[in-house]
Amino acid sequence: MNGGVDAAYLVLGAVLFAIGAAGLLVRRNLLVMFMCVELMLNAVNVTFVAFASALGDIGGQVAVFFVLVVAASEVVVGLALIVAIMRRKPGATADDISLMKG
């Protein structure tokens, strides 16, 4: 494949990952933090697909498939947890959930 285009996909994946990481560290709203995690997962998926097409290996696309499944189940459990937390403490942010702090 064209080497230049491939590098551009990798750069896009890295930039998306960094934006997601920054959001995860900066934001305190639980839902928004969760969306940033999704952003990071998608950045990794972009990289996987770029390598899959560059190396001609379908294994990368299978990995993306499994990342999608894990992301879906993670969202289901995570949102249930957020609903449970919000029911107990309305308007809670990440700073309010420090009960398990050592």
Binding site: M1, G3, D6, A7, L10, V11, G13, A14, V15, F17, A18, I19, A21, A22, L25, T47, F51, A52, S53, A54, L55, G56, D57, I58, G59, G60, Q61, V62
Partner: peptide
């Protein structure tokens, strides 16, 4: 931290590039 992460991942991805081992696909073409 995010900028450092970006630099790190860019370094690794672009240094390694598309010639990790130079081997062809084991599981087949997409």
């Amino acid at each position: 931290a995010a900028v450092a992460l970006l630099g790190l991942s860019l370094t690794v991805l672009l240094a390694v590039g598309s010639t990790v081992t130079g081997q062809e696909a084991a599981t087949g073409d997409p």
